[in-house]
Design a protein around this nucleic acid. Structure first.
Lengths: 238, 238
DNA sequence: CGAGACGTTGAATGCTTTCAACTGATGTGG
DNA sequence: CCACATCAGTTGAAAGCATTCAACGTCTCG
């Protein structure tokens, strides 16, 4: 029998929903969180058009979210890692507006939204936290808009690597040495570039010594220079 | 003496925050909303970096929100019209992350956020509505991301005009005949294009008979064709 | 009325894309 | 376990689209 995963004992509690809650409140949150669910690489957590009933907190793994358009064009709207919440877009209409796909074997905690709503009614600090969380998502999206609207390909790639680096570091991983979980094409889709442009820029960075690229393995040699490249942009760590 | 503006008697109550509230709840909302405030064209409602204390509902007028980056590049992240809420991005950190500038003489209702939080604690349906509202903003931003990441200049302009048209219609204005409140440069900034590109595309649409452009006055002649141009995109009316 | 902001249009430039060829990795089935 | 087919990634060359630079027209407002 699998033990139910509890927020109170979860190593992500300083990063995930429980941030700022007292022990008693976390126990209440535990009562709402469903037993965690495993999603294999390539599987969908949810699909655009499906009824929205739950948010998902990523315990382990890595996801992409994708908006599909009718004519086949689609776009990666974000990459999510442990401690992050996905599904917020579904609250609006009661339907998911994007697909969520696991990019590696993952594990998520399901948060039934109706129960979350009740709980935020009971725990004001959780409501506050939840508002902040949604607002942060808005701010993040606006950062991406700035990137897509203003930046050259080189700057986009730099911003992307930097953002990844910072988020990994926050989770206790190395900031300058990591594995990309997504393909060049997925990076390109997220950054509004073609996969060849992503590849070319990574090669260029590699040749200049800024980073070392070996397939999906990235090592950042000069993180300051990377920061300088995106200097002007009010780039927000997620 | 100016009468305090009340949600209960406001013509926007079907569009704005009170949507879905019963009369009694609207009265509670009235108690929170501050006397409405006039903002002249060109004036700032708030600036990036200022402390966030209130959300603003637009009663009359038109605003742009702008993210500024250090190196002078900045980007319009949205245009807001009556019945829409601005300032949601500030909840996250307690600081506004963008500037809000009136593009015509406007009037806004100030909603002190701490009082809004209390009220959403008291009125569950308002909390639900508020979550939906924030989620809608996330969905909207993702639509813009799709636009910026995937669409050609021509399609962006078409999507922009269509979106404007639909929002105006919802407010009882003509869908095919309206005045642009923003400059070509502001349109371009929002769409990730230069002002010349915006101008060229409008001229092209004009010459093809799709629309009629006379300075800021736009008439849409073939709205279906405009829709076809953005066909593929999961474009959301705001 | 004049100055400055806004808008239009043309021509040249440049960045990203597209098309194409090739290499290396992955994984499946004989 | 290897062969082969497929997918992911790299790189080059040509093409395309938006940008840049520039000139000019027009509207607005003090």
């Amino acid at each position: 029998m699998q033990l139910k995963t509890l927020c109170s004992t979860c190593s992500l509690r300083e990063l995930c929903l429980p941030v700022g809650l007292n022990p008693e409140e976390i126990t209440q949150l535990d009562a709402v969180v469903r037993q965690s669910r495993r999603i294999k690489r390539g599987e969908y957590l949810f699909r655009a058009g499906e009824a929205f009933t739950s948010l998902f907190a990523i315990r382990i793994g890595f996801f992409k979210t994708v908006i599909a358009s009718q004519d086949g064009r689609d776009q990666v709207t974000g990459f999510s890692m442990s401690g992050e919440l996905i599904g917020l877009d579904g609250i609006s209409s009661g339907l998911h507006t994007c697909d969520a796909v696991a990019l590696e074997d993952s594990e998520v905690c399901e948060l039934p939204f109706d129960r979350m709503e009740d709980l935020t009614q009971e725990i004001p600090s959780l409501q506050t936290h939840f508002y902040r969380l949604m607002s942060r998502e808005i701010v993040r999206d606006q950062g991406v808009m700035l990137l897509l609207g203003n930046m050259k390909s080189e700057e986009r790639i730099a911003a992307f690597l930097l953002n990844l680096s910072q988020r990994l570091q926050k989770r206790g991983f190395a900031a300058t040495d990591f594995i990309l979980r997504m393909s060049r094409e997925e990076i390109g889709s997220y950054l509004g570039l073609k996969l060849e442009t992503v590849s070319r820029n990574l090669s260029k960075f590699h040749q200049s010594g800024l980073i070392a690229v070996d397939h999906k393995h990235i090592r950042i040699n000069d993180i300051q220079k990377l920061k300088d490249m995106v200097s002007g942009c009010s780039h927000q760590a997620h």
